[in-house]
C-alpha cells in the first residue's frame, strides 16, 4: 500500500479539503471508467462517480487510512449501480415491460462484425456473471491496462490473488462464450 495514499486518507479523515481534492484527482478517471463500464451511460456514470466521492466525504470520519481506497470507492459505486438497476427493474415491472438493461442490443445488426459481437458478449458477461471483486480486478487489468502487481497494490491484495481472480474471470467467460468461440 502506497504511503502517499495513506497520508492523504489521514488528512481527509481530519476534513482536509485539499487532500480530498488530490484524492479525487488521483482516482476520478479510473472510477468514472469503472462505473461507465458497468452502467453503459456517460451521464449516469458521472452522477454515480460524483455521489461516490460525496459519500466518502460525508463519512470521512470513519475512513480507515490503512485500507485500500480504491476498494472502498469500488464498493460504494457498485452498490449505487445496484440501486440504480433495482430502481429501473421496479419501474419496468410497474410499466409491465421487460427490463432491458445489460442486455446486448445493436443499432444495425448487419454491420456488426464477429469481433464486435464477441466484445459485446464479454462486456455483458463481465457485468452479469462475475462476482464484484473478480469484476473489479478484470476491469482494472483489461480496460485500464494495469499490471497485476499494480492492481495488487491498489486493492491491497497479494499478486497471487490478483492472478487467480483474472484466471477465474477468463474461465467464467470461456464457459459462457461457448457459442461464440
Amino acid at each position: 500500500m502506497k504511503e502517499i495514499e495513506k497520508n492523504l486518507l489521514k488528512k481527509v479523515k481530519n476534513s482536509d479539503k485539499t487532500a480530498f481534492r488530490q484524492l479525487f484527482s488521483d482516482f476520478y478517471d479510473t472510477l468514472f471508467r469503472f462505473v461507465a463500464y458497468r452502467v453503459r451511460d456517460s451521464d449516469l456514470a458521472e452522477d454515480i462517480t460524483q455521489e461516490t466521492f460525496l459519500r466518502v466525504w460525508k463519512k470521512r470520519e470513519s475512513l480507515v487510512p490503512e485500507k485500500s481506497f480504491f476498494s472502498l470507492i469500488a464498493r460504494i459505486s457498485t452498490n449505487l449501480c445496484y440501486d440504480h438497476f433495482r430502481h429501473i427493474e421496479v419501474r419496468n415491472r410497474h410499466q409491465n415491460q421487460l427490463p432491458d438493461f445489460g442486455k446486448s442490443h445493436f443499432d444495425d445488426p448487419e454491420k456488426v462484425t464477429q469481433a464486435n459481437m464477441l466484445e459485446e458478449e464479454i462486456h455483458r458477461i463481465v457485468n452479469e456473471k462475475l462476482p464484484d471483486k473478480c469484476r473489479s480486478i478484470f476491469i482494472l487489468s483489461r480496460m485500464e491496462g494495469r499490471t497485476n502487481p499494480e492492481i495488487a497494490g491498489m486493492l491491497d491484495l497479494s499478486v497471487r490473488t490478483v492472478e487467480n481472480q483474472i484466471y477465474r474471470a477468463l474461465k467464467v467467460l470461456k464457459k459462457n462464450l461457448d457459442n461464440y468461440l
Binding site: 481534492r21 479525487f24 484527482s25 476520478y28 478517471d29 468514472f32 471508467r33 461507465a36 463500464y37 456517460s42 456514470a45 458521472e46 462517480t49 460524483q50 466521492f53 460525496l54 466525504w57 469481433a115 464477441l118 466484445e119 464479454i122 462486456h123 463481465v126 478484470f138 483489461r142 480496460m143 491496462g145 477468463l170 467467460l173 470461456k174 462464450l177 468461440l181
Partner: peptide
C-alpha cells in the same frame, strides 16, 4: 477473450475541474 476484452469503448472522462466544482 484476453485480447478482445480490451476493445470495449468507454465514454471520455468528463472535465474533472467542473466535476470538482459541483462536488
Amino acid at each position: 477473450i484476453w485480447e478482445v476484452s480490451t476493445q470495449t469503448q468507454l465514454p471520455p472522462v468528463p472535465d474533472k475541474d467542473a466535476v470538482w466544482d459541483r462536488l
